[in-house]
Design a protein around this nucleic acid. Structure first.
Lengths: 255, 255
DNA sequence: CTTGACCTTCACGCAGCGTCAGCCTTTAAG
DNA sequence: CTTAAAGGCTGACGCTGCGTGAAGGTCAAG
């Protein structure tokens, strides 16, 4: 059985343009071209198209479909697995968005027209802005733009609860520091708890965590007076103590 | 406070290119252009960008954002509502896809490498192909291409369970017809049940249902010997009986 | 012989930017 | 005061997966 492009299109439910496009990108070549330049497809083409459409419905990009279909040794399961995780993330993101919209609508309907919500968002922006103004240049110099931008982006993506939790934790850190400092020992249980909490706090804005980066940040705290001023505001020498605790916690030795 | 494009970009976490693009499409114009042609943004710009990014995170298209922000009388709640439904559909679709992938992987891992699954998919294709070959030209002539393509597309989108349910129902229809035919009365309870089931079956592949279309199809069944052959295979005169039952069921009178 | 249905090859358009290229301006360092 | 780095500008192409013409050949039916 042979099919002209229109026939195949009708049979498969795609448009003629799609088939021409698939030919163009080499995803589905016709069995032959007749004397008038018409594309003629055979049974093999129908089969291949079937497979293409299967993967396409799974939202696999055409380029990947090509690889999957053309390399018989290709690990299709692995490909599907990774694709699966991607889609899952996409869905989770959608869920978060949906929740945000729900809240926004609720706020709007209660006549508090976005104000509260806006304020929340605004506060995150303010925080980023403040960080940027205060430490921006230095940190960017030290860690590079991508890192900071990623951090800002992550911060902006925080839900209201998470943001509030982060704020609470931030506040908590200062009293934890006071408490731990009282032990006088950066390897004490309290001090290690402090370091752990500090890591937890970091994770709210850090796109990824590494002990080295954590330790590096601790060193910077002491080196930079603005950070020192912040952590020393309740306990003198608190910043140095925090650094020592973090160095022990991360197992990274001081240079 | 005034910002150059880079400053604003860092502050907000977007790229310089993005800001230039937003200027280009008129979504966010700088407060002024300085003597060297540099874009200078003010506080108002920061605020507006904040709002833009809020909606952007909700995956609202930039064009809609522009409308929402520029027309203060615009019903934001309604806009968000419709956006919400769209995203919901997107998520539901994703869920279906995820389920399919899970199954596919399961099949692959059990060493039944896609065969069963392929067969299932293949069967749907075959069904479409068969329909197309047998009734294609006629139906397309009668209902137009869009209708048929939509039907094929819907059929292809069926999950395995639904497909199997459809197959079962299809089979069931024949015995129901036999049973109903025995009553001799197309308005009998059995016959009306038959018509209802037939509608149910149709819904698996019809993108939308209307009584008129249902009745029209019934008329076609009798007019076309291929359909007649199918429905008469167990009961002679079954097709005509089915049509009568459907006409009564839909309340559409025969021409 | 003429329609009309199909076929062909360009080629632009879409969303939302990323990413050069080529050139000018401002800023910090030497 | 010079120089180099950093930042600014305007095009303009690229990406994905086609939709949608335009301009023109081909084929079957009446």
């Amino acid at each position: 059985m042979e099919y002209t492009i229109k026939k195949l299109a009708q049979l498969s439910g795609v448009t003629v343009r799609t088939l021409r496009y698939y030919d163009q990108i080499g995803l589905l070549k016709p069995a032959r071209i007749n004397s008038s330049g018409y594309r003629i497809y055979g049974e093999a083409g129908v089969d291949r198209l079937q497979h293409i459409l299967f993967y396409r419905e799974l939202e696999v990009p055409l380029e990947s479909i090509q690889v999957i279909l053309d390399d018989p040794a290709f690990d299709k399961t692995a490909a599907l697995q990774s694709h699966y995780t991607k889609l899952q993330q996409k869905r989770d993101r959608l869920d978060t968005i949906l929740a945000t919209i729900e809240k926004t609508i609720a706020y709007q309907e209660r006549g508090i027209p976005m104000q509260d919500n806006e304020k929340f968002n605004g506060m995150k922006e303010k925080m980023i802005e403040e960080n940027e103004r205060t430490y921006g240049a230095d940190i960017r110099e030290k860690y590079g733009d991508e890192v900071i931008n990623a951090s800002n982006t992550k911060l902006r993506g925080l839900s209201q609860e998470k943001y509030e939790a982060m704020q609470a934790l931030e506040h908590n850190l200062l009293s934890l520091l006071q408490q731990a400092y009282a032990t006088g020992d950066p390897s004490s249980e309290d001090a290690q708890e402090l370091a752990a909490r500090h890591k937890e706090w970091l994770l709210y804005s850090w796109p990824s965590y590494s002990k080295k980066a954590h330790a590096g940040l601790a060193e910077m705290y002491v080196a930079d007076e603005r950070f020192t001023a912040y952590y020393d505001q309740h306990v003198k020498g608190g910043t140095a103590f925090l650094r020592d605790a973090i160095l022990i916690y991360t197992g990274v030795s001081s240079d």
